[in-house]
């Protein structure tokens, strides 16, 4: 049977998404959050002994029933296409493979965080993480 749908609620908007935030890659290199590229995440995961990158495809985006400030994004995660729903602030950025930061409401993301952002859409493939020793 398919795995159960999980709903994860991340904390409110974290400070590291603000433009200019300094991010340390796995090899020690420092980059600004707005300068991160797909390769930075892939190479960091390759170095990491604990983490691996999964592809998470956006399958559906809905408004939240609890608050207009939130959206529910349904992902199909990894090779097993596990269904996972995440309730996030509409301005919460996800990193899309080959594209960069994207959110349900990029105008709000740019306004609140000054982070350049595109519109997150169904079919986008986002970077997500898994523990290597999970299975």
């Amino acid at each position: 049977p398919p795995p159960p749908s999980n709903t994860v609620v991340p904390p409110s908007l974290p400070p590291y998404f603000i433009k200019g935030s300094i991010i340390q890659l796995a090899d020690g290199e420092l980059k600004r959050v707005e300068d991160l590229k797909t390769e930075d995440f892939i190479q960091s995961a390759e170095i990491s002994s604990e983490l691996k990158i999964d592809s998470s495809t956006v399958e559906r985006i809905e408004g939240s029933h609890t608050s207009p400030n939130f959206a529910v994004v349904q992902f199909s995660v990894g090779e097993h296409r596990a269904q996972v729903s995440v309730e996030v602030l509409v301005e919460y950025p996800f990193f899309v493979f080959g594209q960069g930061w994207s959110s349900c409401c990029p105008d709000r993301t740019t306004q609140l965080l000054e982070l350049p952002c595109t519109k997150l859409s169904v079919g986008d493939v986002c970077i997500s993480l898994t523990l290597k020793n999970l299975r």
Partner: peptide, 19 residues
């Protein structure tokens, strides 16, 4: 200036129960 590790920017989306 705070420095954040790269993995804090990436969500863990894998379900807790697999297969």
């Amino acid at each position: 200036v705070p420095v954040f590790p790269w993995h804090s920017l990436v969500p863990f989306l894998a379900p807790t129960q697999s297969d």
